[in-house]
């Protein structure tokens, strides 16, 4: 780590004030940032500890939930309202990392975690457009079993590693941002960027902005939802493919559906095509498979990850079949 100074902010205004005094990084649970600082991939001169900011998990008037940016992953996963109204979010969180890490990691930090691409991490020897725009990408011709099959570019094929964000994408979650120019909200699905030619720019956040909360809008259909993660180890491993889904079936027909994929793209991948194709269709294995085919039609595989295309299709179909079984 390069030397840095440390300050603790007790509220968002204080954090923004600290930031205004010079470039800094906000520090949450540290589970990703501290690691990246040790690798000197992140080199902030100042850290602003924002773990004292709101960690509340509160019901909104219309039945949604607002989760404070500093709420720990475990606290969300175990929360009664999350478990009953948004079970896919609980399941996504407990599928991620390890219990120790979930006890540390904050909501904001989870949303902002960076890719686990091994070439991104090899700061000393590998080329990476995410670290150094224009440098090139060693993953494209290298080991890329874990890499993206959707929305990648010739500059970057990294994936977003979060499980929680996949559930948030399926839930139409909204990110609350606060900056020196005021507050704004961004849908989670629009929050992360595809790599394009600037994979170093991962989100739509402006310099100094802070994630203060994430809102889950009311979504009665989410009662029937789940998260399935496919990985090499049985636990404590990043997803090869994951699926978060919620479905409402009325008289054997798909009334509404939400699907998001993890492990396949530079961002949590909301499967809008599959969702659109399914609405109004019979809730059958054939429809589910067809929707999955449609979503993955544009998939582009690398040398080692072609299996992910079929794996994603199968997992989508299996998850939807499971959920429709429950609804029946």
């Amino acid at each position: 780590m390069i030397p840095f100074s440390y300050a603790r902010a007790n509220d968002a205004a204080a954090a923004l004030q600290f930031f205004a005094n010079g470039a800094a990084k906000y520090l949450g649970g540290g589970t990703n940032l501290v690691d990246l600082m040790r690798e000197t991939i992140e080199r902030p001169a100042r850290l602003i500890d924002v773990t004292s900011l709101s960690d509340s998990i509160e019901e909104t008037a219309d039945g949604g939930i607002v989760i404070g940016g500093a709420a720990r992953n475990t606290a969300i996963a175990e929360h009664r309202l999350i478990r009953t109204r948004f079970p896919l979010l609980s399941r996504a969180i407990v599928a991620g990392a390890s219990p120790q890490i979930r006890n540390m990691a904050t909501t904001a930090g989870n949303v902002l975690q960076r890719t686990r691409c091994a070439y991104f991490y090899d700061n000393d020897a590998a080329r990476c457009n995410k670290r150094e725009p224009g440098q090139g990408c060693d993953a494209i011709e290298g080991f890329n079993r874990y890499h993206a099959i959707l929305g990648a570019s010739s500059a970057c094929i990294a994936t977003h590693p979060s499980d929680m964000c996949v559930a948030l994408a399926a839930l139409d979650a909204v990110v609350y941002l606060q900056g020196t120019e005021g507050k704004r909200t961004v849908p989670l699905s629009d929050f992360h960027r595809l790599p394009g030619d600037r994979p170093d720019i991962e989100t739509v956040m402006r310099p100094g902005e802070l994630i203060t909360a994430v809102e889950l809008p009311p979504k009665p259909m989410a009662v029937n939802s789940t998260y399935r993660k496919v990985r090499d180890r049985a636990s404590y491993a990043f997803a090869l493919v994951s699926v978060a889904a919620a479905i409402k079936i009325e008289a054997g027909v798909v009334g509404d559906v939400r699907i998001a994929l993890g492990g396949v793209a530079h961002k949590p991948w909301r499967a809008m095509k599959a969702e659109a194709a399914l609405r109004g269709q019979p809730a059958t294995d054939v429809s589910f498979r067809a929707a999955a085919e449609l979503e993955l039609a544009d998939a582009k595989a690398q040398a080692h990850n072609a299996f992910k295309v079929e794996l994603a299709k199968r997992t989508i179909a299996a998850v939807l079949t499971d959920l429709s079984g429950d609804a029946a």
Binding site: A118, Y121, A126, F143, A234
Partner: peptide, 28 residues
């Protein structure tokens, strides 16, 4: 699960970490 990935382009080990080299965990 176990494999040390050796990048044949430059002879460098690509996964020099316990996150990327998968030894069995309890649930395995």
């Amino acid at each position: 699960t176990e494999e040390t990935q050796f990048d044949e382009r430059n002879g460098r080990i690509v996964n020099p970490s316990l996150a990327d080299y998968h030894i069995p965990v309890h649930l395995d």
